[in-house]
């Protein structure tokens, strides 16, 4: 065997050796346990704290608002979509207050006119034109928006 090949074989063996050591050292231990991903990722995600508690938890104290909301188009909307995650609030309602959104742009997250959004399902309003001077909740009741404030 010519000396060039011999030397190259040595160099390539070293390179591949280093590659396999690195691959062994860096590949997460649980990789490939269930599929082409880190097996532990499932358990790690399972162990994360659940921050959204759901409408039923709100219903324990605010049953009047929850049942009022059921009468309007926001019936399927979870309370925490507007008020934010409630996991701290249910532990200590006095210290951990939830958000009460009042800005026009908050309603606009869903209701701002957007060609890509179906108008049949969500009412679309052009925030640049519709009653620009006022907040939405100055007229609309947020929990049942087709009813107006006095």
């Amino acid at each position: 065997m010519p000396q060039q090949i011999k030397k190259l074989l040595i160099v390539f063996t070293i390179i591949f050796g280093i590659f396999f050591i690195i691959k062994y050292a860096l590949k997460p231990k649980s990789f490939g346990e269930f599929g082409h991903y880190r097996g532990l990722a499932i358990i790690e995600n399972e162990n994360k704290q659940v921050k959204y508690v759901g409408t039923e938890a709100c219903n324990d104290c605010h049953d009047d608002i929850v049942s009022y909301k059921k009468e309007g188009p926001h019936v399927n909307l979870q309370c925490e979509v507007c008020h934010g995650p409630g996991y701290l609030h249910i532990q200590d309602p006095e210290t951990n207050k939830l958000i009460i959104p009042s800005k026009r742009e908050k309603c606009g997250i869903c209701h701002q006119k957007n060609a890509a959004r179906s108008e049949n399902n969500i009412t679309q309003v052009n925030l640049k034109e519709h009653n620009v001077e006022n907040k939405c909740i100055d007229c609309h009741k947020a929990h049942n928006p087709y009813e107006f404030k006095d």
């Binding site: 800005k103 742009e105 606009g108 997250i109 701002q112 957007n114 925030l127």
Partner: peptide, 8 residues
């Protein structure tokens, strides 16, 4: 206006 709508 809210920057999110600005960018939209």
């Amino acid at each position: 206006m809210d920057p999110r709508y600005e960018s939209l």
